[in-house]
Design a protein around this nucleic acid. Structure first.
Lengths: 200, 200
DNA sequence: TAATTTCCCTACCGATCGGTTCCAAAATGT
DNA sequence: ACATTTTGGAACCGATCGGTAGGGAAATTA
């Protein structure tokens, strides 16, 4: 390993932590969406004043894009871990679904998936955002394929089963984002489990 | 039947058609979302000037709410017709899915479902919008229940199957909204058909 | 200590936001 | 013809939008 501690830069060090600020910015965009969130909101949430924000992250759209990519990477990593740590076979799939819903519903007010919430807003938006929905769905499909492979089956079966899981995940996120409570969300899990049971 | 032709009001008649304007307003909100659409956009799209808009429809949020309810009513009516006109049994369900996707993909740029696109934006929004997501999902569940009943089964089976169809519809709309092309959308239909086949 | 670099932060920019005021024009009933 | 009613349309309102300038404070190297 090289230097874990990067050399301190020349001038006055900044008073805020970049990662912490990104967490707060992501939270805010997640809660309110891009258009409804003003730069003044970003300043209030982070305590970082406007010129510092612009110097560090660029424009409001740049901040948003960065939050989105960061969230995507983290969420995919989380799902990968969840899939790996759930057991094999149908039971492993069911365990993953339980864990996933737990994660989606975590926090006081569950906001669904940031990407799903944003993809509705990103139609024909700024360059750099057009592919975002497709990127997200492709990543989701990779995870879904890993997941359904636990149940075995032919490659063709795995592909079509991954398809239903992807759509299901997107639908679940919309439901939760749209205000679905625990009971409704769990019913959705049960509905998919009924499908999964036919893969034995 | 009473008078089909309402008596002409006292003053100067308006130069725009209210229903036509609502169509154009809905289209605009559908395309851009609520927050990204300015009142100036509404004026430009309809040709109706601001004071006339406000006098006729009230505030921007009032216009949006009206568009949403109108869209919901119409979409549910369309789905009801589609379900009724598709045949009985599993084949009827499959025929409906084909017809539904045709409708969702119709038009040059498919925008998914307006309600799905909006529900992401409506979190904690103005009073009158909080229940909208739940209202929509409930209406969708009624349609889904009618649909899956075609395959028979116990009440418990019908309920859980309707659940998977609702989630699937929401997920499909998100996909299409997020830029999914015809092939990806049809793959989603095939994925659900594979599930429906197990209901025989 | 002196020179330099970077940061924090107030104040400000033009543009646009949602919404209103006001008046002439156009239709009505009497 | 006349008074009444409601329209269309431009001009205007304060507030807020995203983004920037410039000056003082704090840390660096020399």
């Amino acid at each position: 390993m090289g230097e874990t501690e990067t050399r301190r830069p020349r001038g006055r060090p900044r008073e805020f932590d970049e990662e912490t600020a990104l967490d707060q910015l992501t939270e805010l965009f997640w809660e309110q969406g891009f258009a409804r969130t003003s730069v003044a909101d970003l300043v209030e949430a982070t305590g970082v004043h406007k010129p510092s924000l612009y110097r560090t992250f660029g424009s409001k759209e740049d901040v948003f894009a960065r939050c989105l990519h960061r969230y995507l990477d983290r969420r995919m990593a989380t799902m990968r871990d969840l899939i790996a740590s759930s057991g094999p076979g149908i039971e492993g799939i069911e365990a993953f679904l339980d864990a996933l819903l737990d994660e989606v519903l975590s926090g006081a007010a569950s906001k669904g998936c940031l990407l799903v919430a944003s993809s509705a807003e990103l139609r024909g938006s700024t360059p750099g955002f057009e592919d975002f929905g497709a990127t997200y769905r492709a990543a989701l499909r990779e995870r879904a394929t890993e997941l359904v492979a636990k149940a075995g089956g032919t490659p063709a079966e795995i592909e079509v089963r991954a398809g239903i899981v992807v759509i299901w995940m997107l639908g679940l996120d919309v439901s939760v984002r749209g205000g679905a409570q625990r009971a409704e969300a769990w019913a959705a899990v049960d509905a998919l489990k009924a499908v999964v049971a036919t893969w034995a």
